[in-house]
Every structure is written in structure tokens, then in C-alpha cells.
Design a protein around this nucleic acid. Structure first.
Length: 246
DNA sequence: AGTAGGACCTGGTGGC
DNA sequence: TGCCACCAGGTCCTAC
């Protein structure tokens, strides 16, 4: 999927354009795209809601709604949110779309249907949003070498596997795990708990710089990733190892 | 705790 | 040109 940098790019673009606008119509063409609540409850719950703020947690985009609700978006492998003006040409794999009060359409386009949309209200009974279980944000101040060292301590799974575990560190996927490990000079199959403090320090720095660099270049377009206007990212030319041979 | 395998899905690509 | 097998940036579940 789009990993942290691709979600962050989308969130920043949407943040500049969505707040203050309201959803006046919700359409879902693939019911299983709705992770919570029911498709009917999802559509009814979003009707007339104003978008107030856009944040990111791991690989989730969180669109805060008036009244305290949150529209959560996970892009899966191939999901994109496109913000299109009224009457704009059709996008090929739109699974759900929202009409805004000025006529623009926010379209969730996802060929492989692994993406998910969630609506959670501030008052909940029972189920918690999936983004509340995520691990540390790798671009936050809490992501220190010491914190990472403690997260890895005692783990016998391969370091790459652990980096991909969203409950440990949130937002890293296949591309950036490979790139960060290469930049840090650490073999991906090493047991996570076997890394020395120096190595963990290098890894922390590599994760930060690889992610920040990719955000600066608006993400990596390996095949299908597109931004909210349908444009490709610019980081693919910087990849050192992902999908490269030799 | 870890991991291997399958499931969920579909489109693009490369080989023949 | 056409068909087919394989691959894909994610996550979840089950069985060892």
C-alpha cells in the first residue's frame, strides 16, 4: 500500500482543501469496503457532516467531523482518495464517493478492494477504531533510539518483520522497511533483539530520514500510487534497494 | 512468540 | 495479438 509518506502526502493535500466543507451525499458501491459500522449506518452517519480537520495515524488518514466523529481511511494496497471537481471524468476503480456541498467529489478509488473506510463517533460502546491500537509514530519525538531499542528487545523475529508490525511502529511497509534497513547497513533477517544499541541508533535515524525524504518528494509511485489529484509521487528514483536487483 | 500459508481482490506485466 | 501464470506498496486469520 501506500505507506506512511504516501498517506502523509494525501493528508497534507486534503488538509489544505477539505476543512469547512460538508458531505451532502455518500455512495458505496462495494459494501465490504466499509469496516465500521454497517454500510447503511456509514452512509446515514456521514450525511450532512462537516469536515473539520485531517490527521494521520500510521497508514490511516483520519478526517475529523463536526460532532466529534471520525472518518478513517486505510488505502490498502491500491486505494487512493481523489478530490475531483463536479463533472470531472470518471476514475476507473471508484468503490465509494462523497459529494461535497460545493459539488466536488471525494472519490475512494481502489482496484484491489483491500482499502477500508471507517466511521466512528466520539461516544462508543464496544469496538475501538483500529488506529487506536497502533504503535509509535516514527516521525514523532517519542521515536528515540532508546524507545526503539526497548521495543526490539527480546524479539526473535526478523527485524524487517518487526518493522512491518504496525502495533510496534506505525506506518512502515515493504518499501521503506527495505530502504531504511539498507541505509542503516542492517541485514533484514537479523533477529530484532540481536541489534546492538549503535545499530538501533542507525536504524532509527535511517527510518526517520527515509520517511522524511519520501514525504518531501510526495511519496513513491511504484505502480499505482497517486495523490489526490491523480498525480504520481517523485521518490521512486531515490530507491536504493526496493525492487532492484544486484 | 514466531512463522508459514492462505484468504481477501483485481489489474498489469512478461513470457510464449 | 492472445492467453496464462505470476506478481503486487497490506492486513488478518489459522495452524503448527
Amino acid at each position: 500500500m501506500p505507506e506512511l509518506p504516501e498517506v502523509e502526502t494525501m493528508v497534507r493535500d486534503l488538509r489544505a482543501r477539505l476543512p469547512g466543507r460538508s458531505i451532502v451525499e455518500t455512495n458505496v458501491h462495494w459494501d465490504r469496503m466499509v469496516g465500521h459500522p454497517s454500510p447503511e449506518g456509514f452512509k446515514a452517519g456521514l450525511h450532512g457532516r462537516r469536515l473539520e480537520a485531517i490527521e494521520r495515524r500510521g497508514k490511516f488518514a483520519l478526517l475529523a467531523l463536526d460532532g466529534g466523529g471520525v472518518l478513517g481511511v486505510h488505502r490498502g494496497m491500491t486505494g487512493s482518495l481523489f478530490l475531483r471537481p463536479a463533472g470531472f471524468e470518471a476514475d476507473r476503480f471508484v468503490r465509494a464517493w462523497f459529494r461535497l456541498d460545493d459539488g466536488d467529489e471525494l472519490r475512494f478509488d481502489d482496484s484491489r478492494k483491500f482499502g477500508r473506510l471507517y466511521l466512528y463517533e466520539s461516544v462508543r460502546n464496544g469496538s475501538q477504531p483500529p488506529w487506536e491500537r497502533l504503535g509509535v509514530e516514527p516521525l514523532s519525538e517519542e521515536f528515540t533510539a532508546l524507545a526503539l531499542f526497548e521495543l526490539l528487545a527480546g524479539r526473535r523475529a526478523a527485524i524487517k518483520t518487526v518493522l512491518l508490525n504496525q502495533l510496534v511502529v506505525a506506518g512502515i511497509g515493504n518499501i521503506y522497511a527495505d530502504e531504511a534497513l539498507f541505509a542503516a547497513g542492517i541485514r533484514p533477517t537479523r533477529p530484532a533483539g540481536s541489534l546492538r544499541k549503535r545499530e538501533v541508533g542507525r536504524l532509527r535515524d535511517a527510518v526517520s530520514s527515509v520517511l522524511a525524504g519520501a514525504i518531501a518528494r510526495r511519496g513513491t509511485t511504484f505502480s499505482t500510487y497517486r495523490d489526490v489529484d491523480g498525480e504520481a509521487g517523485g521518490n521512486q528514483s531515490r530507491l536504493m534497494v526496493f525492487h532492484r536487483h544486484g
